[in-house]
Write a protein that binds this DNA or RNA. Structure first.
Lengths: 138, 138
DNA sequence: TTCCTTTACTTGAGTCATTCAATAAAACGA
DNA sequence: TCGTTTTATTGAATGACTCAAGTAAAGGAA
């Protein structure tokens, strides 16, 4: 199934911008909005930053993209959704790496005491220094 | 040991603003900067917003306060540090509640595969609907 | 195909949390 | 008490993101 069908399936219109943005995020890893904007332009020419914001929100609300916001840095988007994986974030360079769920397949949704909350998601970020920044000294 | 000594111990000068801010955060739970500013004023009169930002950063860097930034809302500070607890955040009203570490005393610092990262902290946020918002029938 | 309605895109201005910069005022060791 | 260093004040700036109004494109209906 192509991306056009994926979009239609979630009730979104198929536009060049959305197809390009979807592709960009898939290729890119964990890109911020600015990077997505720049790379998307390389694919389809002119696209406004607002169009990128709009499309990312639509794609995110439709469940096609996941949005992460590590403390202190702008939002990032990734195409890997629905598998409840977590993230390693480098304190030095800010790079993000996926980590599979700590508990295997289970969705990590069980704090020992939920205090009455109806919990539907566990958002887990591991902070540390990435291999490259370790070797770079400091 | 009083707060003044606590401040001196971490190498910070003792000022009325810092003492009041520390007290405010202790009393407040998970307050954002604006709330801290407002409440601190009630304790000591005039304090500028920037002084609050500066003090919070200093206190945070000194390890006296913990900073959390749930997606989509301004930063919040809490006085409970060093025990690696986690947070429940309400999707509806944004309120934050503490949860003890899922793994008991252990610091939850073991993703199955760290990809070479030197991990020093696990930041875990559980998202859901708080009891009050559940009964309010959204 | 053409028309029409709905949805998306563009441009430009606005908001909010946070930071920067320069001056004034305290803290605290000498 | 003095002098240096750190902290506070005031005001301006930044950056990520949103809002709003008009234009363009998508896709169903005629």
């Amino acid at each position: 199934m192509g991306d056009a069908d994926v979009l239609r399936q979630v009730g979104l219109r198929v536009t060049a911008a959305r197809l390009a943005i979807l592709r960009t995020v898939r290729e890119g890893g964990h890109l911020d909005v600015d990077s997505i904007h720049r790379r998307t332009r390389e694919h389809v020419g002119q696209v406004s930053l607002q169009a990128v914001y709009d499309a990312l929100r639509a794609l995110h609300e439709a469940g096609l993209l996941r949005k992460i916001e590590p403390m202190g840095s702008p939002a990032r988007y990734e195409a890997r959704v629905g598998d409840n994986h977590h993230h390693l974030v480098c304190r030095t360079c800010g790079s993000v790496t996926d980590v599979d769920c700590v508990k295997g397949q289970a969705p990590c949704l069980d704090p020992t005491d939920t205090s009455g909350y109806l919990v539907d998601e566990a958002d887990i970020t591991f902070w540390g220094i990435c291999p490259r920044c370790q070797t770079k000294g400091n």
